[in-house]
């Protein structure tokens, strides 16, 4: 890893604070709303911290800036973490998050592009990557240098539409496209390997013509380094298999499908908040 490629913003300590803030805000949101998917939000909190802590080129005061890097949260059920990251990055004040999942709120339980900074509405799995392919193709045709980043879950790879898009991006050498797979090894009911075996996953993406790297999806320096390398790939789309732990950050939530559904209340909420200090 060369220090020279790291962005100026987002020193490791700052990113750690960013990630902790994402988790704390997402936890408050889902607990207040008694909504699901906090485990999924924690799983990708570090990835979002690295992206919004400096790596993505965005302008919080100008969310629709045409030169921005596009980001699609294909695992739209982790919207609480995305909204938290956007508020932390300055797209809107953190108080706005109190409306999350509330009556009449734009902060829907699945990612909504009505929220400033959200490029695409998601919620149904298998949509984010093919949409990102369209955006990356437009950038390629127009010789523009912004990137299109899509964050997918591992269970989401069961959806056939992803494999249509993986074939497409490889064929068209969409090198402005980066996919990050949040590989926490779990899906809705059970382990991914028990449900529909994905491994060897890196070999599958490579076989479709992608540049592939694996990293610890909670190690900020490693994530940053691999994302920077991906940014400079030419002639191939890039895929990062971020090995993560579902529920990461709160011991009783880690590696459990229960926290795909349950929201923390009372003593559980207190304990979780304490662990995230």
């Amino acid at each position: 890893m060369s220090a020279g490629v790291l962005p100026a913003v987002g020193a490791d300590r700052e990113i750690a604070v960013f990630a902790r803030e994402i988790r704390r805000r997402a936890l408050r949101m889902t607990s207040r709303a008694r909504s699901s998917h906090i485990g999924s939000a924690f799983s990708c909190a570090d990835i979002l911290a690295v992206l919004y802590g400096g790596l993505l080129r965005v302008r919080p005061q100008e969310p629709g800036w045409s030169g921005r890097d596009r980001f699609i949260l294909s695992k739209g059920h982790a919207a609480s973490a995305l909204y938290a990251a956007l508020s932390r990055r300055g797209f809107f004040p953190s108080e706005a998050l109190e409306a999350y999942s509330g009556d009449g709120s734009i902060f829907c339980g699945h990612a909504s592009s009505a929220v400033p900074g959200v490029d695409w509405s998601t919620g149904s799995l298998g949509h984010g990557l093919p949409v990102a392919c369209g955006m990356a193709l437009a950038a390629q045709l127009d010789h523009r240098d912004h990137r299109v980043v899509a964050l997918l879950s591992d269970g989401e790879l069961d959806e056939g539409s992803n494999w249509e898009a993986i074939l497409f991006a490889g064929h068209h050498r969409l090198d402005r496209l980066t996919v990050i797979v949040d590989c926490n090894g779990l899906q809705s009911l059970a382990a991914t390997e028990e449900t529909l075996r994905l491994e060897p996953l890196a070999a599958k993406w490579q076989g479709f013509g992608w540049w592939v790297a694996e990293c610890d999806g909670h190690d900020h320096a490693s994530l940053r380094s691999v994302l920077e390398t991906a940014r400079h790939q030419s002639g191939k789309p890039s895929c990062i298999l971020a090995r993560t732990v579902k529920g990461r950050g709160v011991d009783f939530m880690e590696n459990s499908v229960l926290w795909h559904y349950r929201s923390a209340q009372g003593a559980e909420l207190d304990s979780a908040m304490t662990q995230l200090e």
Binding site: P130, G134, S161
Partner: peptide, 11 residues
């Protein structure tokens, strides 16, 4: 499926 989604992305 991918044709339709990428059309939306291009649009």
């Amino acid at each position: 499926q991918s044709m339709t989604a990428l059309a939306a992305g291009l649009a």
